[in-house]
Computed example of a mutant assay.
Amino acid sequence: MSTILYARASTLSQTIADQEAQASAAGFAIDQVVWDEGVSGVRVRLAERAQGRRLFDMLRSGDTLVVRWVDRLGRSYADATDAIREFMRRGVIVRTVINGLTFDGATADPVQQAVRDALIAFMAATDQAQAEATKEAQRAGIEHAKANNANKYRGRKPSYSREQFNAVRDMLAQGTRIGMIAVASGLTRQTIYRIRNDVGVAERALVEWGM
């Protein structure tokens, strides 16, 4: 029986090394790391990613699949829930680094199954809603900046990049501790607190500077 970490990084600030370090810090003894880098979890399904396909080939009954959060498997409801249910059907245990959640097919109790499946569905739906809201906010911010761009004082240039902002916002939404976000993003705690306290203002600052 093996413990395999699957990591996915779609931006420069979401590194594979950080996800591996977080898993080790959480107490996971990882036998093998499988990763996809520069791949969107919104547009590309797990089974269509080069290394995502490997998971379906290599995982066996009794193995444990570790992910930082279910959004590493997919940012769409259908993709994430389908993947987790398929792994459970095969006897694979799925565990998350954040919050230490465990999903498996061991229980035969219908109430426990219902609770488990409802939690999986809720987490996957939240991830998709967040991804869609982010894209909409970016579009709205760009249009706002275009409409108000004539000789406008833009204020101080943000101390964070678009990739760092996206990573911080995602980790905040997942309940990651500020200290861990600081290590993963390379930003100061003060910057992360400013983003957390007003995500809209932080987003507009990036757009106004064309970032």
Rank of each mutant, 00 (worst) to 15 (best):
D82Q: 05
S10Y: 05
D117Y: 02
T81M: 05
A133T: 08
P158M: 04
A202T: 12
A184P: 14
G91W: 01
A106Q: 09
R85K: 06
I93K: 10
N166G: 12
A17D: 15
S76K: 05
I16N: 03
E203Q: 11
Q14W: 13
R156Q: 12
T64D: 10
A182I: 07
Y193R: 15
R116H: 01
Q112F: 10
R49Q: 05
T96M: 00
T188G: 15
T107C: 08
I192H: 14
R116K: 02
G27Q: 04
D170S: 11
Q130W: 12
A23F: 06
E136W: 03
L73F: 05
T81L: 07
P110C: 12
D71E: 12
T11C: 06
G62A: 07
L73T: 01
Y6P: 03
Q138C: 00
T126P: 00
A106C: 02
S61M: 00
D170H: 07
I98T: 07
M211S: 10
R72F: 05
E163V: 07
A83N: 01
D170G: 11
V34L: 15
L119W: 11
T107L: 05
P110N: 02
R90I: 01
A108P: 02
G27M: 03
S10M: 01
T96N: 00
T3Y: 10
G105Y: 01
K152V: 02
L206W: 09
W69T: 07
M88N: 04
S161C: 05
A114N: 09
E86Y: 04
R95H: 01
I93V: 14
V39E: 07
N149M: 06
Q190V: 14
G175A: 12
Q112M: 11
I181Q: 13
N151S: 01
G41E: 06
R54Y: 06
I84N: 00
A26Y: 08
V97N: 02
Q32A: 09
A17S: 15
G105F: 01
R72W: 04
R169G: 06
P110W: 07
A140W: 08
R49L: 03
A83D: 00
R90E: 02
I120R: 00
V168D: 11
A121S: 10
K146F: 06
R60W: 02
R194K: 15
A167P: 04
V115Y: 05
F28N: 04
L101C: 02
D31R: 04
A114D: 10
V70N: 03
A47S: 15
Y77L: 00
L119H: 02
A173S: 13
R54L: 15
T11D: 12
W35M: 00
E143V: 00
A121Y: 03
V111K: 15
N99W: 11
V199P: 03
M88P: 01
I181P: 14
V199A: 06
R156S: 08
T126R: 09
R89W: 02
A17M: 10
